[in-house]
Structures are given as C-alpha cells and as structure tokens.
Nucleic acid binder design. Structure first.
Lengths: 211, 211
DNA sequence: AACTAATTTTGGACATTGTCCAAATTCTTC
DNA sequence: GAAGAATTTGGACAATGTCCAAAATTAGTT
C-alpha cells in the first residue's frame, strides 16, 4: 500500500466516522505519520481528495448498474440493495453531498450526468417491470411519481438515517430503508410482484434474524 | 430595526443565497457597515446566529401546526403547502441541516423533539384521513410507509431541488414537490379524497397558469 | 445639566484551517 | 556511483471564527 492509497483509505475511514468537514488535513497526516504537505503532493486540495473518494463510489455503483442480470422485480430490489451498501461504505459523501456539490465544480458536473443516467435506469426499469407483469400502474403518472420517490429515497436515506434511525446499526438501517423501498412498490404489486418482494424481504431479514 | 434585527435579516438573506458555510462574518459585517466583533456581541458564535434563524423557522412551522383547521385532506395538503413555503423562506437551514445538526448541540436537541412532534402530527393526520373516508389503506403498514415517505419528502425536498429542478423558480419548485406529495396519496385515495386533491391541485397551479 | 452606570461598538490579537513553495531527501535508472 | 525523477519536508501565507480590553454611546438619576 503506497502513500496515496494509505491517504485514501484512512481519509475515507475518518470522513465516514466524523464527517468530511471535521477532519483536518493535519490530523489525517498526524495519524498517518506523514506531513500535511505530503498529502497535498498527491491531492492538491482537500476537494481533490474528496473527489477521488466520490469517484470510487461512482465507479462501484456504475459497475452494479452495468451488470447484466435477469430482469425482474427481485433483481431490481437486489440491485438497489447493493447500491445501498455502497452508499453506506461511502456515507461521508452522501452526508456532505449538498456541501460538496456547492463547492466542487468537478464533482458537480459529474453528478449531473450520474443523475440523468440513474433516472433513465429507474424509468426503464419500472417500464420493464410493468411490461413483465410484476407491477401495474393504473395511472401512467404513478410510474413517474414512483420513480421520483425512489430517486429521493436513494439520494437521502443516508442523511435521513441520522435523524430517524440513527441508533440502529448500519445493517439494520439498510434493512429499514429497503423495507421502505418495497413499501413504495406495495400499492402497485401484482401477485407475481408480491411473491418476489416477499422473497426479497425474507432474504434481507434472514441472515441476522435467524435463531 | 436595531442592530440585532439587521444582522438577522441580512444573514438570512445571504445564507439563503450563497449557503451558510460560504458567508463569512467579515463579509456580513462589511455589508452591514459594522465591525465583526459587533456581530459577536449579539451572537457569540456563528452557530448562535444560525440557531436563532432556525428558531424562527421552527416557530413559523409550529404556528402552522398549532392552528386549528377543519379536518380533511384539503386542509392537510394546504398545511403542508404553508410549511413548504416556510422551508423555502429559510432554505439555508434545510440545505445545511446535516452539517448543522452535527455541529450544533442546541439545534440538534431541539430538532429531535420537532421530529417526534412532526411524526405524531403525520400519523394522527393520516389516521383521521382514513377514518374520515378520504383515504383507505388496504394494509395498515401502508399508512406507516406513507408517513415515512411524507416525512422524507418534507425533510429533503429543498436539497433535492438542487439536483432535480434547480433551474426552476422557487414557486415552481414548491409546486413540483406538492404534486409529488399528492402523488404519494394517489394509490390510497377514495373518490372523496380524489375530489379534494383535484381542488388542491387546481388551487396551487391556478395563480400562475391562468391566461 | 452633570455624573454614573449600563449598553453597545471597536480594534486588534489568537488559534486553526486549507493552500502553497523552495529545499531536502529518497528512489530509479543507466 | 552519478544524474535525474519522484517523494517528503518545514515553514510561510491568507482567511476564518473567536475572544477581550478599551473606547464610544446611550439611559437613568440627582
């Protein structure tokens, strides 16, 4: 592990724990046993460091979305589960998102593209799910509203967990919001869709609830 | 208008425009034609200033929730509309909420109480709406999920508007998210409920769309 | 009107932050 | 082993929020 990787790893760890804004470069350098200017050699500004970390998150998420999987509601939910796990691993980014986008031109531009791609993924996914008979939207506007709400949930469940379920452990927080995601689908599920959501719910609550 | 009020007014204006973190005390003082230490005389720390502003928002919202109004879906939606307007007037708070709560013990404690109260308001409101026949929840869990999603929407529509509809003017942004709020109710509306949501939609889109 | 006490305002200092740069050190390569 | 590139260092800089003693202003009392 070279210096650059050490910096990235420790920075992510500390940023997640205490928040990007509250970790000073001098403290980070101190813990790593190096000098501040050694950090700025690899990352000219703190923003660059944050940018790199957020690039890692983007890469992880894009890998998930690029993966070809059997279509269906279960697959869709499972994809979201993996994305939620990524969010948790890089939660410092989600927690400072507004702040970061205000400040960081590079991330801001990339984020806009990401948002468009995610929106496309969502609407096409929902259309496929409707065509395949997993869900049914009485009103076409229901589909768009669902897409908007899923996007909102995916974007803000991490900050929301600070207020709502912050006493829970991370795995339980993820479960809570995955349940909420399923609940969003609930009014539109066909019996075929219900079966897959039940399976999904069983899977995510299984590993820790078994006795 | 005394010095304290001048500081509060100009601070809110600048915080809303550029973000709390990006307005320095020296700049604020400069525009007001006073010295920095004159600000710290009234607000010992910047946090205290932010705290006061967020207190104003809380007071405005609590006044809305305390107001006795005729029960019903239309009243509920209209109450949310007023709250959304308050959020817009104090949008700097919503935009830095996570940041503020991490940093500011006083606001953080008060916020927890506010969240509980808001949650109570939501669940009892939804129960009343169900009892009154405006909405019907096939599954009792639907009601809780709806409450959670409304809470999420109310908490994060302002930051979300940065990403999604940030090219729109504030009034249109509010309309967009009020439509989303109505869409959340959509699957559960009775015909009685449908009538009131239609009326509400007409009202909020009327004033600017009339030709 | 004059004096006193309280309130308000000021100028300057302080520690901390991210950023920057020239010099010193270490590592590669031939 | 020497030359050149890559890395690391120490110290400086401006900007920020915070703080304090002194000056200026205002309010109240005789």
């Amino acid at each position: 592990m070279n210096t650059e990787e050490k910096i990235l790893a420790k920075a992510l760890e500390m940023f997640n724990e205490r928040g990007i804004e509250y970790v000073g470069l001098r403290e980070l350098a101190g813990i790593l046993g190096i000098r501040v200017s050694n950090i700025t050699y690899y990352f000219a500004t703190k923003d660059d460091l944050v940018n790199r970390i957020s690039l890692e998150l983007s890469a992880a998420n894009e890998a998930v979305l690029r993966a070809e999987r059997e279509p269906g509601l279960h697959t869709f939910l499972d994809t979201m589960r993996i994305i939620f796990n990524n969010h948790m691993r890089y939660r410092c980014i989600a927690l400072s998102l507004v702040h970061i986008l205000d400040q960081n031109e590079v991330i801001s531009e990339r984020f806009k593209k990401t948002q468009l791609a995610r929106r496309n993924f969502l609407t096409t996914s929902l259309s496929i799910l409707a065509d395949g008979g997993w869900v049914a939207f009485p009103d076409p506007a229901d589909r768009d509203a669902l897409a908007s709400m899923i996007a909102l949930l995916a974007r803000f469940w991490i900050p929301d967990s600070r207020f709502t379920v912050h006493k829970l452990q991370p795995p339980e927080q993820i479960r809570y919001y995955l349940h909420l995601l399923v609940a969003l689908f609930n009014p539109f599920l066909t019996s075929k869709g219900k079966k897959e959501t039940r399976k999904f719910i069983d899977e995510i609550s299984g590993p820790s609830d078994k006795k």
